[in-house]
């Protein structure tokens, strides 16, 4: 006999299956290189944003410097392969390890802070890392950009077309979502959700809040690092411009738009806000304003994001049905 939590888990897995199927079938019907390219970026963004949702949506810890972790993964992959001839997979792994270490070192003192202070600390740290990307020219080539980054491959199979990379990225994204869903509904997930709301109560129930905050922080950094490495081997060119505070804000906007406290919200937000600018191509210069307006509008009218809106709609329908 299944209890309702197990049912909920099964349902999440079913969603994941549908999602994976839709993603898998997409390129079969849509052959446009351009759209595939957009979807590759959607996949990369999904990975970062889902990790961010775990941190900010579930555990309630603000991070305004996540672009830095993305950048660390990206640059580690880039620099190690171009300048030191590393195998891309080794560089990938190195990126994860480096990012995790940095996240740990920053996380331990920062996560002792609350609210604004934590936001500021992550903000400051993000900026410092970005400045390092710009200034450490001997390593990163600074603003002129790191070029000729090799692509990535398994055995002899090279992921060098949009089509192949699409599947490559989305396998990672699907796994990322799978892991996140598992975390949310688990002892650790409950500990995180508990400390989000009532940190004192959680501590009194035996949750080592300091430890879990750092763990989820590092985990979300690892997600960002993976996304960064995938980004590097796709566009084979890196410049510090891509890892600034505005990108951290974009991650935030994507998460908020889709629904912060919801893994699927992260995915929805990432995909929709990666696709959106493409529709606004004609209004290239308006994109900044539109993001601003979106952020404001979402905060005012649907603070739980799109999925939050959907959820309340479903709840209302259920309630009406019960009353009938």
């Amino acid at each position: 006999m299944e209890n309702f939590l197990e049912k909920r888990r099964k349902r999440q897995y079913q969603y994941l299956l549908f999602f994976a199927l839709a993603i898998f079938l997409f390129p079969v019907f849509v052959r446009s290189k351009y759209l595939l390219n957009v979807m590759v970026f959607s996949g990369i963004h999904t990975i970062v944003v889902v990790g961010f949702c775990l941190l900010m949506g579930y555990a309630g810890q603000v991070s305004l410097g996540h672009a830095a972790f993305f950048g660390l993964g990206a640059y580690t992959s880039g620099v190690l392969t171009v300048k030191f001839g590393f195998n891309p997979w080794m560089a990938f792994g190195a990126g994860i390890i480096l990012t995790a270490c940095v996240a740990y070192i920053i996380g331990v003192p920062s996560l002792k802070l609350k609210g604004h202070y934590l936001a500021m600390a992550t903000l400051g740290f993000g900026i410092i890392i970005q400045i390092i990307f710009v200034q450490w020219r001997s390593l990163t080539e600074g603003p002129s950009g790191l070029v000729d980054i090799p692509g990535i491959s398994i055995g002899g199979f090279k992921f060098n077309t949009d089509f192949k990379y699409y599947y490559f990225v989305w396998i990672f994204a699907a796994v990322a979502v799978f892991f996140s869903l598992n975390i949310v509904q688990s002892r650790v997930g409950r500990a995180l959700r508990a400390l989000n709301k009532k940190e004192i109560g959680a501590e009194a129930m035996g949750v080592d809040t300091a430890k879990y905050k750092v763990q989820v922080f590092v985990l979300s950094a690892i997600y960002a690092s993976v996304a960064g490495s995938l980004y590097t081997h796709y566009i084979t060119f890196l410049s510090p411009e891509g890892f600034t505070f505005p990108f951290s804000v974009l991650i935030l906007v994507m998460a908020v738009f889709g629904g912060l406290a919801n893994i699927w919200g992260g995915a929805v937000g990432a995909i929709s806000l990666t696709i959106l600018p493409e529709f606004l191509r004609a209004y290239k210069n308006y994109d900044i304003i539109i993001y601003g307006v979106i952020l404001i509008a979402v905060m005012m009218f649907m603070p739980n994001g799109i999925l939050g809106l959907v959820e309340s709609a479903i709840d209302r329908i259920k309630a009406k049905r019960r009353a009938a």
Partner: peptide
């Protein structure tokens, strides 16, 4: 929200 303002004003 204020982040949204800042983006809007900048744009």
């Amino acid at each position: 929200l204020t982040i949204g303002w800042s983006i809007f004003l900048k744009g």
